[in-house]
Design a binder for these strands. Structure first.
Lengths: 243, 243
DNA sequence: TCTGAGACATGACGCACATCATACGCCGGT
DNA sequence: ACCGGCGTATGATGTGCGTCATGTCTCAGA
């Protein structure tokens, strides 16, 4: 299903560490966690490598423990689409696993050494049959995904490219950004120009022009860890409420 | 929460009728259905009226029994976005109900006398706590929604307006279309030009030009019940795999 | 140290499309 | 029968953006 990192898993990726980072696991009762623990496995994937590929048969629920991952789909026209960028703690895919169907997208690691925990479908489904908190936690997870995908649709429909880029950056800032003492917002996510283009439904050249313009106007700069928003008010205006 | 139709509900909107049309209800065991039945209520909403409005507090899971509904959000720029069009049998909103948060969009009836069944959140949550088929059915429902929203993102990212319109029509044809003896596909959904524009992230004028062009090329026509695809092969080509 | 690959950047050009304006047809109400 | 509102349609214009090409910089490997 995916390339297993050659280096053995770091000792700190214990099940308890995963529990501390994954809301779904935190919501489970002690008995459920105990029963689930022996079946959980970990994988660490290098940047750019797939967690899974499109049309893979998925037999595990996959939660992100560390790093970010993107859900991609290639179109026949050659253009790629990024459906979503997932943050630590989130469920990577529910639809294909729940429906016993092949994966409809490819999941790629976006940071070095992205770590996921895999929970077998059979054990998860048995657990939610027997446990109210487990079922509620999984529903909470999938409804969170719904809201994020809905927000993506609003971004993509918001108008011309500059507004779509602005809307994306505003949302990423709200979702995973960290504000420093100067009021700047660091988005800790290394996004190439092609990534931004795939997220905003445009071409890499147009995205480069947009980001260069935003840098020239001192609104957004690109740092080594990811975009830095230096004028959040202006960016909000450019996003026009779609962020 | 919404306008209640002045005419009393038609006798045929019984709970049994709702069960026959809503997959989630069909998946429930007899005992669960029996316990749920007294709490289910029905509403019939005229075309254009809201099932609920943005920021409403939702206390019920709402399933569509008859007709279609659209989930809309207005942006600060004045542009409206249609997040999704829902078909009979589907759950209209899970996120806000599950998360005890205000509705993030407005739900509007798209046909005359759209009918919904409302199931109180408390009773649904209690039921999925106690019943494996119920929890599985609700997860199946929300994961179906994920896949549809993912497909919407692909449509919106597919390129220029004509391709986005084509991708939308291809998907609607697959989802709710009916093929007649001549091979034409009737999409039984009255969509105004403004609706199509809101679904495709463009303006009403551009959509009118696109639909007029498609009609001139004898690919898609607009009938009284909704769009009619007269050349599915050409439309697939225009959609470029994003349908 | 040198080279090649990958990512970012810029230029030129032509088409797509948003915006604003106006016209037409249909339907419902008076 | 007439009028007004709504939806569809068309025209004109200017800006946005996709496409193709070329240049520059950085980094890693030989």
């Amino acid at each position: 299903m995916c390339v297993m990192s050659q280096n053995p898993p770091r000792p700190r990726w214990s099940f308890d560490e995963a529990v501390s980072r994954v809301p779904f696991l935190r919501a489970l009762e002690a008995g459920d966690l105990k029963r689930l623990r022996p079946y959980a496995t970990f994988r660490t994937i290098p940047r750019g490598q797939p967690v899974w590929s499109r049309d893979d048969e998925l037999s595990h629920y996959v939660f992100l423990v560390a790093g970010h991952a993107k859900l991609c789909r290639a179109c026949e026209t050659g253009r790629d689409v990024i459906l979503d960028v997932c943050a630590p703690g989130e469920l990577l895919c529910a639809s294909a696993v729940a429906n016993f169907s092949p994966a409809c997208c490819t999941c790629l690691a976006m940071d070095e050494d992205v770590t996921v925990v895999l929970l077998p479908r059979r054990d998860v489904l048995r657990m939610i049959e027997q446990s109210a908190p487990a079922a509620g936690a999984l529903l909470h997870e999938t409804s969170g995904r719904d809201m994020r995908l809905g927000r993506r649709i609003v971004e993509l429909s918001s108008g011309q490219v500059e507004r779509r880029v602005a809307a994306l950056l505003v949302r990423l800032a709200d979702q995973i950004g960290a504000t420093d003492h100067a009021g700047h917002v660091q988005i800790p996510l290394r996004l190439s120009r092609q990534d931004l283009a795939d997220l905003c439904g445009t071409t890499m050249e147009t995205t480069i022009r947009t980001m260069t313009k935003l840098a020239r106007e001192d609104i957004v700069h690109t740092g080594t860890l990811g975009p830095i928003i230096t004028n959040r008010i202006r960016l909000d205006l450019l996003a026009g409420g779609a962020g």
